[in-house]
């Protein structure tokens, strides 16, 4: 009974008009959540948290750098799950969402690499080093760009999406490499500060803005993903009756 309800629910969600309306309803709340959390997080990061004992005020860039890096990786995992669903069940919404996530993930990767570089110049003494962590993060950006390029290279959007979904699953192997690069090898990049298992090496007074900013970028990713998917569906279905009805066009 419950299983059937879930199944019917998913089928309803899989229909473009229903998905479109759902996105429309959720989108403002997600944007609201983002602006609220980011405002609190940025205020705390810039005015409340004390300067670091070694780096002074420069360390505050981590409140953008770390959430962006996490989201670039978490967004990829979300895309991989969607790609898996898209390849096995051929659900069109999953294909579209997997494709629409790529530019957002690429943007987070760029933010991560840029802020890291800006921090690295005064702290490490260099903008860039070809160590395992930095290089694997750059590879993630290239994978995102590859997905975008592959998707747009096909006239048939569904075909392009399916082939790009295979690339998403191939690139998934890079995610654990990024995470464990600082443990498996010696790198210029420091090890993980925040650990889910074991003690984090950041003083608790510095944690709240990191939590706020992490939640904020989750909202941002979700909001951008739903909005982009909604636009793509509208564009792809622009000659279908439900879109014309939605737009108030009578044939």
């Amino acid at each position: 009974m419950i299983w059937k309800t879930i199944k019917v629910g998913f089928h309803r969600l899989g229909s473009p008009p229903n998905f479109y309306r759902l996105c429309q309803r959720f989108s403002p709340w997600l944007w609201g959540g983002f602006f609220l959390c980011a405002a609190v997080g940025l205020y705390q990061a810039l005015y409340v948290v004390p300067p670091d004992y070694q780096q002074g005020d420069s360390f505050r860039i981590l409140y953008v750098h770390v959430p962006a890096a996490w989201q670039a990786m978490a967004g990829y995992v979300v895309m991989a799950i969607l790609a898996f669903i898209a390849l096995v069940w051929r659900i069109r919404i999953a294909e579209i969402m997997a494709m629409m996530g790529a530019p957002i993930g690429a943007a987070f990767s760029v933010i991560c690499l840029a802020t890291g570089s800006i921090w690295g110049r005064p702290m490490w003494g260099t903008w860039w080093a070809w160590d395992a962590r930095l290089t694997s993060m750059l590879v993630l950006l290239f994978i995102y760009l590859g997905i975008m390029g592959l998707y747009s290279a096909f006239e048939d959007k569904r075909k392009g999406a399916r082939i790009a979904c295979i690339l998403i699953l191939v690139g998934l192997v890079n995610i654990p490499i990024i995470h464990f690069s600082v443990e498996w090898w010696t790198t210029l990049h420091q090890g993980s500060t925040i650990r889910f298992f074991g003690e984090s090496t950041m003083h608790y007074s510095m944690m709240p803005p990191l939590v706020w900013m992490t939640i904020a970028v989750k909202f941002l990713f979700a909001a951008a993903l739903l909005d982009r998917s909604r636009n793509e569906i509208l564009d792809q279905d622009r000659r279908r009756r439900w879109v014309l009805e939605h737009a108030g066009v009578n044939r």
Binding site: V49, P50, P51, D52, Y53, Q54, Q55, G56, F59, L62, M123, W124, G125, T126, A129, L188, Q190, G191, S192, T193, T201, M202, H203, S205, M206
Partner: peptide, 27 residues
């Protein structure tokens, strides 16, 4: 020909570090 600093993964407020130093636990 090039020297880079490697930052460790510890972050703590400057005042706390100074307090630790005063009590004989330098960071």
């Amino acid at each position: 020909h090039e020297v880079l600093a490697r930052h460790d993964e510890t972050y703590m407020p400057a005042e706390l570090a100074r307090a630790l130093e005063r009590t004989g636990h330098p960071m």
